[in-house]
């Protein structure tokens, strides 16, 4: 499972969340514009050096990639089949670098600080009818409930396995979706009960 904030005092921990979000957006775009594997490899190395410099360590970088290794394997195999080894390696290096770059943000920034930065940064959307407070709360909820959804999926998978349905994606997906929808109603109630007001100044 992906990791969240790790307390620390590195330059990245001290950097303003808004600046980190902008840097991630810029860095992510640049990664997609890089022309070849050597340049991409150099950026990946730089990202790994930042993990070292911030005290997070290479283990934290690896932890960002571990949950998606199977997806990487499937994508790599597909790319190799369609376009060859070099394209496959380029594709996977690009996504791995992007994931590790994003990990630097979540590992060094409290979600509440990110939410506050997003609310401030997206204020310009308000005249267009979008509510920055709702958008930033959605981000917090996504980070909060990814592990909960994983747990629900695991519970449903176990329940189906004992009934002999261990290979049916539909048998797992439908109860997960139903439970998730029920949970979303309960979460909406809880947010309301805790005095959330998206229109507060």
């Amino acid at each position: 499972m992906f990791e969240l904030y790790r307390p620390g005092d590195s330059f990245l921990h001290r950097m303003r969340p808004g600046a980190k979000l902008l840097a991630l957006a810029g860095g992510g775009t640049a990664i997609f514009l890089l022309p070849g594997l050597p340049a991409l490899g150099a950026v990946m190395l730089a990202v790994l050096m930042i993990y070292g410099a911030t005290g997070l360590g290479l283990g934290a970088a690896w932890a960002q990639l571990r949950p998606v290794l199977i997806i990487f394997a499937v994508l790599f195999a597909a790319q190799v089949f369609i376009s060859g080894w070099m394209t496959g390696a380029f594709f996977i290096t690009r996504f791995a670098t992007l994931l590790m770059l994003a990990g630097l943000l979540t590992l060094t920034t409290r979600v509440s600080d990110m939410v506050a930065a997003l609310e401030h940064g997206l204020e310009w959307l308000r005249p267009l009818g979008l509510n920055p407070s709702k958008i930033s709360l959605a981000l917090a909820l996504a980070l909060r409930f990814i592990p909960v959804l994983a747990q629900i999926t695991s519970e449903v998978r176990e329940a189906q396995r004992v009934r002999g349905l261990d290979r049916s994606i539909i048998a797992i997906a439908i109860p997960v979706i139903v439970r998730t929808l029920r949970m979303s109603d309960a979460i909406a109630d809880a947010i309301e009960a805790r005095g959330y007001n998206p229109d507060r100044p």
């Binding site: 969240l4 980070l143 909960v148 109630d189 809880a190 805790r194």
Partner: peptide
């Protein structure tokens, strides 16, 4: 169910 009440991840 506290899982439905806890809104922030930390």
């Amino acid at each position: 169910n506290p899982d439905n009440q806890i809104v922030f991840p930390i």
